[in-house]
């Protein structure tokens, strides 16, 4: 049960979070929402709740309940939601039947593009631009998956309890893309961007290095030892964090 719950949280809060950058960076996706103003609420029984808002050629993704969304999609369980993400189930629409056309056409194309950028293994020779977007998305997924794993995975909860309160900055040099994690009393929250005074920093020297590191294609010890990945500050925070990060691949 916790597996499905964690996966559902990651799908809604971490995978979907990338829609914001997808719309900003990918012209084709942006064109699909041109002139459209639509918001979608995802409701999972005994599971996560999130909303998407497409407006003015931008996308915003939020956690929780949105006031008066255009569309409400209901899922009878976290497993139901996860099956939808795997293309094996459909949501139950509760509101916004007139917008179903958007969900079946444009939204499907947008999520297919998202999947394309998240799965580099399908490409033989990914371009530099592709690697940059994939790296950005992978970093976001990793960061936003952490709180979900910590909530419901016993070992991860223990690891998080060992992290002193503070802020951890992860970024690809020269400081973009960047995410930071706030740890308080064993709970982790993730945000995109930079924080002013991080207690620990993990910086990856360039996109390719970050891509290899985040996708498990490089030896992390070698990457740190040769200076491709630089860690600084209260690196004991990163020790425990890495134990949780290692679990992300079990859910995505």
């Amino acid at each position: 049960m916790s597996y499905q719950l964690i996966k559902a949280g990651i799908n809604l809060y971490a995978i979907f979070k990338n829609l914001e950058d997808l719309i900003a960076l990918d012209e084709e996706s942006r064109n699909l929402i041109k002139g459209k103003k639509i918001s979608i609420q995802f409701l999972v029984k005994n599971g996560p709740k999130a909303w998407l808002q497409f407006e003015n050629e931008t996308c915003k993704v939020g956690q929780g309940i949105m006031h008066n969304p255009s569309v409400k999609l209901w899922f009878k369980s976290p497993e139901h939601l996860n099956k939808m993400f795997d293309g094996e189930a459909n949501p139950i629409p509760l509101k916004g039947f007139t917008k179903l056309g958007f969900l079946q056409k444009e939204f499907v194309k947008i999520t297919e593009k998202l999947e394309y950028y998240l799965k580099p293994e399908k490409l033989e020779n990914p371009s530099k631009e592709y690697i940059e977007i994939n790296t950005r998305f992978t970093l976001t997924v990793a960061a936003f998956a952490l709180p979900e794993i910590v909530k419901y995975n016993r070992e991860a909860k223990l690891s998080a309890s060992h992290i002193p309160d503070g802020k951890i900055q992860l970024w690809v040099l020269p400081n973009d893309p960047a995410v930071f994690l706030t740890v308080k009393n064993g709970e982790i929250s993730a945000q995109k961007g930079t924080t002013e005074k991080p207690d620990a920093i993990m910086e990856m020297k360039d996109y390719q290095t970050a891509n290899n590191f985040l996708n498990g294609k490089s030896n992390p010890f070698l990457a740190i030892a040769i200076g491709d990945v630089i860690i600084r500050g209260q690196t004991n925070m990163l020790d425990s964090l890495s134990l949780i990060l290692d679990k992300v691949q079990n859910y995505v």
Binding site: N219, F221, L222, I224, A225, G227, I230, I231, R232, T235
Partner: peptide, 20 residues
């Protein structure tokens, strides 16, 4: 690193040596 796990493992690992 090609023939030894971590290259240098345990308490001699370069990871806590900062800047490495």
């Amino acid at each position: 690193a090609e023939v030894i796990p971590c290259g240098i493992y345990g308490h001699f690992s370069p990871a806590p040596l900062i800047p490495v």
